[in-house]
Each structure stands twice: as structure tokens, then as C-alpha cells.
């Protein structure tokens, strides 16, 4: 549907080269604390290809969000080792905005309020930046309206200031709305399910599945809970403990986590 109205989207998704790859190798990241730098990521290896859905699961404090922010270029985190590439290009050498223009998208756990900037202005500005040209007004308005309708967002939403006074569910819908409109090659969804009631979770999951069905986006779904995996089926599941991946498998691994929790991965240090 939107493929017909937005030729750039189709081109991106089914381009002759087609497949895109985010490759994280040996990534080590630390953060400044009062007691000096603290190592959070201890050598992460993870590859996400177009069309794949990866679930990265782990307990609180394991460093899942740090991984997401580090790939997006959050200034708080310092990369001390390893590489991140998108189709071979050095992501770590790119500014935050360049990473997004290269095709990375991060749906944030805590989206930031931007007072005085309306959602519609924000979306149009972002779309223009990502595409390198302003979207055609008529199709753009239609696309935004359709995407908002799918996510059960009221039209008045577009005139509100970005994330200002949004409920938890509204913030997450707004993140997925952006994912749908910006057509990333690889999307990282950082705890998009946290704080959502089951109805909101379904709407958001439907939104993600819609983007997946309409494009060839690769998804890295970061979550603490298995609940969202009932709605978004992962191809791969990675268990993340203390800054690295300790086990990998298919969707069945998530079922096991559901039954057993993370306890069996606990090391003496964290127990």
C-alpha cells in the first residue's frame, strides 16, 4: 500500500543489492561514573540481516540498553573496543544523525520530550533529513495519517509537542510511527514493550509486524520479558548477561526463558 505511494521505500527495501547487515563485533563500552569508567559491554558479537528478527533478552542491568544506545551513538557511552558496521561502513565513525541517515533506527525506551516542536514538524523534518529531500506533501500527509490510524493514534496527536505529556503507550506508538515512516534498514527496539498494558502491546506489536511485512527491515528487539514475543516472532533469540551474549538459539529459547527465567545464568558475582 504505502509501497505504491512512496517509491523510495520500495527502492530501499527491495533494492538489487537488497540485503543489509548490521555487524557488531567484540563491542566493549564503558560509561563514566563517579568512581571512574565502568565497563558495561564486554565483547558483544551480533549480526542482524535484513528481514531477520532478533530478540535480545536479559535481566535488568545486563547492559541491553547500553548496546542499543552505543550503536545509535549516545554521547554518554564510550566505545573502548570492537567494531560496529552497517554494510561494511564504520558506524562508530559516524555522527548520531549520520547513523540514522545510513539506515539505523532506535526506538527508545525513554523517548525525550522536545518542547515547542510539534510531532508533524518533527516527522517531516526527520523524513526530509533521512531521504535527503522533502517528502511530496500529498502522499506524505496521507502516509502519516494512515500510519497513525494503524497505530490507533488520534489525528490531534500530530499537533502535540514531541513526547510532551505523552502517556507511556503514546510514546511507544510514536516511536513505532517513526519506524514506519522513516523506513530504516535496521531497527533496534529498546524495551518497546516495557510499561505497556496488553492492549497497547498488541497495537505496538501489530505496528512492528506491519513494518516488517511491508519492508525488509532487520529488527533487533531488546526486551526483559517474553510477553512481546507472543506477538512478534523472533527468528533468533540471544540471552544477554553482564554485558555479553551467553546463549543463542531460535524462538524455542524464549519459551525456555519464560519457564526458567534468567536465574540459571546467574554468576556467583551477581547472585
Amino acid at each position: 500500500m504505502s509501497d505504491l505511494t512512496d517509491p523510495t521505500a520500495t527502492a530501499d527495501a527491495t533494492d538489487a543489492k537488497g540485503k543489509h547487515t548490521l555487524e557488531i563485533k567484540g563491542l566493549m563500552v564503558s560509561v563514566e561514573t563517579e568512581d571512574g569508567p565502568k565497563e558495561i559491554l564486554r565483547g558483544v558479537d551480533l549480526t542482524v540481516n535484513s528481514g531477520e528478527t532478533h530478540a535480545l533478552m536479559g535481566p535488568n542491568g545486563s547492559g541491553k540498553s547500553t548496546l542499543a544506545y552505543s550503536v545509535a551513538g549516545h554521547p554518554k557511552y564510550t566505545v573502548t573496543g570492537g567494531t560496529v558496521t552497517l554494510d561494511g561502513e564504520d558506524v562508530l565513525a559516524m555522527s548520531v544523525d549520520k547513523r540514522a541517515r545510513a539506515g539505523l533506527f532506535l526506538a527508545m525506551q525513554y523517548p525525550v520530550e522536545v518542547p515547542g516542536v510539534s510531532v508533524s514538524n518533527f516527522l517531516r523534518t526527520a523524513k526530509t533529513a533521512i531521504d535527503g529531500e522533502a517528502p511530496k506533501l500529498r502522499t506524505w500527509v496521507k502516509d502519516v495519517k494512515a500510519a497513525m490510524g494503524n497505530l490507533r493514534m488520534d489525528a490531534a496527536f500530530a499537533e502535540r509537542n514531541v513526547n510532551e505529556g505523552f502517556s507511556g503507550g503514546e510514546k511507544k506508538r510514536h516511536e513505532i510511527l517513526q519506524m514506519q515512516l522513516l523506513h530504516p534498514k535496521i531497527a533496534i527496539l529498546d524495551e518497546t514493550d516495557s510499561g505497556l498494558d496488553v492492549d497497547a502491546l498488541k497495537v505496538v506489536s501489530e505496528g512492528v509486524n506491519r513494518v516488517k511485512s511491508e519492508s525488509d527491515v532487520g529488527v533487533l528487539l531488546i526486551t526483559h520479558y517474553t510477553r512481546i514475543l507472543r506477538y512478534i516472532k523472533p527468528d533468533f533469540v540471544h540471552v544477554f548477561i553482564e554485558g555479553k551474549i551467553v546463549e543463542e538459539g531460535g524462538a524455542e529459547l524464549a519459551d525456555r526463558l519464560e519457564d526458567e527465567g534468567y536465574d540459571r545464568y546467574a554468576t556467583p558475582a551477581s547472585a
Partner: peptide, 11 residues
């Protein structure tokens, strides 16, 4: 705020 906007491709 700047990180959020830039993470959407805005220079």
C-alpha cells in the same frame, strides 16, 4: 533532546 532529534537523522 539533541540526541533524540539527531537519532532521527536530523543534522
Amino acid at each position: 533532546q539533541l540526541f533524540y532529534l539527531q537519532s532521527r537523522g536530523i543534522p
